[in-house]
Design a protein around this nucleic acid. Sequence first.
DNA 1: TATTTTTGTCTTACGGCTGAACTTATCCGC
DNA 2: GCGGATAAGTTCAGCCGTAAGACAAAAATA
Lengths: 409, 409
Amino acid sequence: MNRSVATRTGPPAARQATLREHNLALVARAVFESAQPCSRAAIAAASGLTRATVSTLVDRLVAAAIVAELPPATPQRAGRPAVPLAPAPRSLVGLGLEVNVDYLGGRVLDLTGAVVAEHVDPDDLHDSDPAEVLARLGRIAQDLLATVRADGMTVAGARLALPGLVDTRAGRLEVAPNLGWSHLDPVRLLGLGPDVPVEIGNEAKLAALAQASRGVVPDDASDPAPSTYLYVSGDVGIGSAIVVDRRLFHGRHGWTGEVGHVVVDPRGPRCRCGATGCLEQYAGKDALLRGAGLPVDAPTETLVAALDAAEPAALAVVERAGTALGSALADYVNLVDIDTVLLGGIYPALLPYLRAAAEAELRARVLAAPWTDVVLLPAPVGDHAALTGGAREVLRGVVEDPSAWVAED
Amino acid sequence: MNRSVATRTGPPAARQATLREHNLALVARAVFESAQPCSRAAIAAASGLTRATVSTLVDRLVAAAIVAELPPATPQRAGRPAVPLAPAPRSLVGLGLEVNVDYLGGRVLDLTGAVVAEHVDPDDLHDSDPAEVLARLGRIAQDLLATVRADGMTVAGARLALPGLVDTRAGRLEVAPNLGWSHLDPVRLLGLGPDVPVEIGNEAKLAALAQASRGVVPDDASDPAPSTYLYVSGDVGIGSAIVVDRRLFHGRHGWTGEVGHVVVDPRGPRCRCGATGCLEQYAGKDALLRGAGLPVDAPTETLVAALDAAEPAALAVVERAGTALGSALADYVNLVDIDTVLLGGIYPALLPYLRAAAEAELRARVLAAPWTDVVLLPAPVGDHAALTGGAREVLRGVVEDPSAWVAED
DNA sequence: TATTTTTGTCTTACGGCTGAACTTATCCGC
DNA sequence: GCGGATAAGTTCAGCCGTAAGACAAAAATA
């Protein structure tokens, strides 16, 4: 009897409805990825669909308040003027949440990429109580949701960023060393209602996605953000993410990019992970401050001031960090063949002092160096990037599958 | 005038024909990935399509000789017996070609995965003349094609494996150090007619794809080959590939997996790449033979014999190689979060002697070690794996888009 | 004002899938 | 040995989404 209920594995069959969903997403992407507002006719020409089909699809997106019709621009050419289309402001929004060692907070973005609400509480959350902290963040989230709902917006979902080993699918935080948290279900502890679907993610991974500005939401076109890059964020630990075509490379569990524990010198100092000579012991924040003779809890600005003052200890330790970083990034590039590296966290401030050493090491060690240049760039989105990244991930889901938000009929 | 001819960027629009192509591929995959022959009804149940639709799609695949109807098996249950479906033998075939330092040759596989023709010429091709060698391989290919065509088979395409930096899209070989080749167009030099589309690929990458046995072509079900793994092939150099769901992770240019040049010890010996302490200098074939006090042109068997005889120099150098390999693989796993490693080339023979050291290093250095085990396995397909991988890649193309091989009407 | 040009809508046709009835082929129980 | 049960595969009308082309609308241009 239970024979042929068949697991229904593999990709789903395509039916007529699938066609419509596909093309609806195609049209939505066309609107969202266009630098300037575009017309129905332009979308038809670019996509290969007929103007008739594009029209019906656009009408659905407009009815769902995903796309907005702008007032007609003053026409320049002959012919009936086009109706400009653009992402709809302040209708569907995404919520990014984060708990990190130095703050907790939330940020709400709309489909245009604008911040419509935000609340950030700086705090020292080393070895904090997860239940208490997450309940507090839950209340912050509720406040933000109430505010934007009062303005008539609909919340598409939320994404919680955590600085640790996260199993996104199971919704479990395995361990977050710096928070002193382990083995818990953060979504349950947040205590948001079932009306807002919450997923969790690693902080560095979500911050990485925030860097792809042209992804979901058009920024100003002067910023040609790359779509394939490595994002490396330096703090006490050094996390990173592999982004290909504005999407994360996920690996087996999502635990990619642990570049902080790449071997720089096996005879080097012992790392808190138990091994020796990891990158973190050369280019992590604690190692840098200690090496420069500064207190471990000093802010990055203190180190930068020491560098600006040309203090020899600071200059030496940062150059050594640059060499170590270059060596580890060379391994990274040799293994995954991605040659644009965005540096976040403490690195943008230090980049002038470590760039030369890092680039020398990259030139020496990257096998493909004769045919391609590895580019080191400061990450464009800095402050609490994971909040932006989390909110954008939610909105990317809306744009890539708008059918869930479009009326049936 | 030239305004709106629009580049037609992005994914194509979905039309009715797209639906059919999608479902045709879905049905083909169902037949090819099934362990035993399956019926139309079983495919319908598994895919969610109706039996009517599956029937018409299967009929097209049968007419195109991609799928074959087997004679009915003796029925066990009540009801009309099913017609078993399986990949069609000896109809569409793929050609794998390879030039490497020690041989050149070709292999023809049919859709069942069976070798239907093969020709391998051992030879020393260090610093050879590319035009002469590729012309020779072209003649071998012509002979193989003539043979299989005489038996009524159709050649779907060919794939040429080369040991070097290959730009697959442009069809250019940038450099193959061991052959002494650089900057050439191997497809043109092969001189095959336009009736057989030839693509080129890196040897290690294609060998890696050969390891996913259940991919295109069902092997015996006793071998549960993984679908996501790292493949690391040791020879003079050490190449590798990242395989996710039986597909290559391509990176920017396809130049991923250069694990031979991951840093093991920056104070280590100088590598031929110009840097110091690369893995290749510890675990490459030349380094191993030299360290064991054997001639550099000795075959691997000589080293294995020395190990079996418990010669101290050999044991020491292989253990050192195991540690180095473990260190480099730990970096690899930390960066890409893939925990199954298939070892090919010279490593399967050496695995008993280097496994302990490598696994110790992996346990110490892989950050996720407490939550997941890194598994080292000998690669299942050994002899000239790139030939098999190349042919399978061609056939994978057929199964993933059968519509090109199915009659219009 | 008439013509040209381009946008957006309307109508008809077509292709591909669904669902339900129907046919075919086997097993099972009496 | 025969009828019912069971399952596989086929046939046919109907639905849905897109294509194709005509048509309406709105602006620049002569």
